[in-house]
Structure formats: C-alpha cells, structure tokens
C-alpha cells in the first residue's frame, strides 16, 4: 500500500471511519506485533503492546503530522511502548525468555526453530538502542534513512549502532554454531 493510500485512510480515520482504521490495522498488525515480539521475546506482552499501540494511534490521529510517514509514526510508538513495557517488566519480575519450540518434527523445521531461538536469544543480549536498529533493519526492512526517521536520530548514528550491534550478534550467534 502506498503512502497516499495511508493518507486517505488516515483522513477517513480522523472522521471516525472504523473501516478505514481496520484497513490500517490489517496492514500494520503483523509488523507491529513482530517488532514488539522481537523487543520483548514474549507473545502475550507483544499482544498487549500491539493493542496499546493501535489504541494510541486511534486516539492520536489528530496529532499525526501528515507530512510524516505513517509507518515511521507507528513503528516509533511500537518501539517506545516496548521499551516502556520492558522497564515495567524488569521492575516487576526477572526477564523471562519464552522457551524455543523444540518439539519433534522434520529436521529442517527443528533447525529453523533452533536458529530462530538463537537469533532471538542473541537479540535479547543487545541493549535496546542496538536491538531497535536491528529490528527496524532486518525484521521490518527499513532503510538507513527510514530508521533515522523512526528513531529521530542522524543517519550516521544509525550506521554506527547497526554495525556495532551486528558485531555483537555475530559473536553471539556464531558461538551458538549457526554458521
């Protein structure tokens, strides 16, 4: 869906059109949920964050700057909400990682589940600054400029954080014997 399609839907949302909101929800639900899941490593928490993000979006359409890209706004809210959630969770309980699904099955599926778990475990070792750039780059497919837009930091900082984060991930995932 193009930027102009998003704009049309947003204009309709501001007028209270629930169908337009549902169309945006259908488009962004999965990336928002995935970003939250990669940040938090917990499906229930990711569901709660996704719900909060869309409620905030719905309640704040009026404050959305139409000259900005909608996805930048949504992803920014998602990452900020996830970081807030992490803060709350860390205060309440020790960090709990979801266990990887290591149930039996075809060998390829088991390998894929192991890689997925190793990548997620490595992600969780990163600081939130590094984790956000990796998520935006590799899970949401954003360019350097788009990451800079979402995080409101200079492109140069994006590059530096991304390259440093990769170095840490390379060592962590390499240790797990994935390549």
């Amino acid at each position: 869906m193009s930027k102009s399609d998003d704009k049309n839907l947003i204009a309709r949302c501001i007028k209270g059109d629930r169908q337009a909101f549902e169309a945006l929800l259908i488009q962004y639900e999965k990336p928002v949920f995935n970003a939250a899941y990669r940040m938090l490593n917990n499906r229930d928490d990711a569901s709660d964050v996704t719900q909060t993000v869309f409620l905030k979006v719905y309640e704040n359409f009026a404050s959305f700057d139409p000259s900005c890209r909608f996805f930048s706004w949504v992803y920014r809210i998602t990452l900020n909400e996830s970081i807030n959630w992490l803060g709350k969770r860390n205060r309440l309980e020790p960090l709990q990682h979801e266990a990887a699904d290591d149930a039996g099955g075809p060998e390829q599926e088991v390998e894929s589940a192991k890689l997925s778990a190793d990548v997620q475990a490595a992600l969780m070792t990163l600081s939130t600054d590094y984790r956000t750039v990796i998520i935006l780059k590799h899970f949401l497919g954003c360019s350097y400029m788009e990451i800079s837009d979402v995080l409101e930091i200079p492109e140069k900082t994006v590059r530096s954080r991304l390259y440093s984060a990769r170095q840490i991930l390379k060592d962590a995932i390499g240790e797990a014997g994935n390549y």
Partner: peptide, 24 residues
C-alpha cells in the same frame, strides 16, 4: 549473519487480536 537473521520467520499475531483491538 544477515542471512541468518532474515531467514527467521515472522511470527503471526494471535488470530483474535485484530478483533479485540477493533472492539476496544
């Protein structure tokens, strides 16, 4: 490394989540 990260499949949100959001 980048190939490994990007080969990780996207997780699907719970099927009822959209419905819950629309109801909320």
């Amino acid at each position: 490394l980048c190939g490994s990260i990007e080969s990780v499949e996207a997780v699907s949100p719970p099927p009822h989540l959209r419905h819950v959001i629309m109801n909320t």
